[in-house]
Design a protein around this nucleic acid. Sequence first.
DNA 1: ATGCAGCTTCCCAGCATGGGAAGGTCAAGA
DNA 2: TCTTGACCTTCCCATGCTGGGAAGCTGCAT
Lengths: 128, 128
Amino acid sequence: MNIGEAAKASGVSAKMIRYYESVGLIRAADRKQSNYRDFAERDVNELRFLRRARTLGFSVEEIAKLLELWRDRARPSREVKAIALRHVTNLDARIAEMQAMADTLRHLAHACAGDHRPDCPILGDLGR
Amino acid sequence: MNIGEAAKASGVSAKMIRYYESVGLIRAADRKQSNYRDFAERDVNELRFLRRARTLGFSVEEIAKLLELWRDRARPSREVKAIALRHVTNLDARIAEMQAMADTLRHLAHACAGDHRPDCPILGDLGR
DNA sequence: ATGCAGCTTCCCAGCATGGGAAGGTCAAGA
DNA sequence: TCTTGACCTTCCCATGCTGGGAAGCTGCAT
């Protein structure tokens, strides 16, 4: 399977497949005589795993560990769970930060007339 | 005022001050004969504005517009409000995304024993 | 055989930030 | 006065993830 087909089948762009390979996230694919990469079904499965993990917000580094565990039939589920929960903690922290930003801005915007006049609590706050 | 003092006074690192100057976010500071940058109180005020806007999550590009409006005494508050609300919409979207990620993961992690055994709904989902 | 689609590598760009090297400047203390 | 150390200057590099594009090779269909 060429990289284009693997990309279509997995939902990961060819550009990204090459990148993941270059940083060692996935095994380097086999090569045909033409030097074209040759993907097997197993590779496509890993790429799909990868894509799904990305949509859940895992970093490339975390995915490296998850993939390793995935490949290891004797993994302890404890390790997988730990990575997932650490990521959840991380997400929650970032959500709280952004929530605070949004709330502050909503509040300031609410107090701003939003017309032709220059007076503006938003700028007032920023320049306090 | 040297860049170090301006950094301390504004809470923006010297590195970042140089960067903001290089991308045209702030006016290029005056130079002394030594070629050292020379900051005035007004510059420090802009840097503080900048820092506050960054903590509210505005992009450098948005801040460029906000700074422009801040400097313009005849600005219509409408424009400021529009930028702020657009940013809030943006934040809300990202929060919702991350919330969905966190919820999915919490759910999967809850179903995962997290012990020495290899069975794991988290990996199951990722590799579905 | 010719052309086009698809592959290869390599470089560049962005966001915002920090690290560090090589070299110039300033102020304080011996 | 000279040295020293803190601070400044520019320049390049790296991060994490993604896309754009150039130059050149391969493979298939007409």
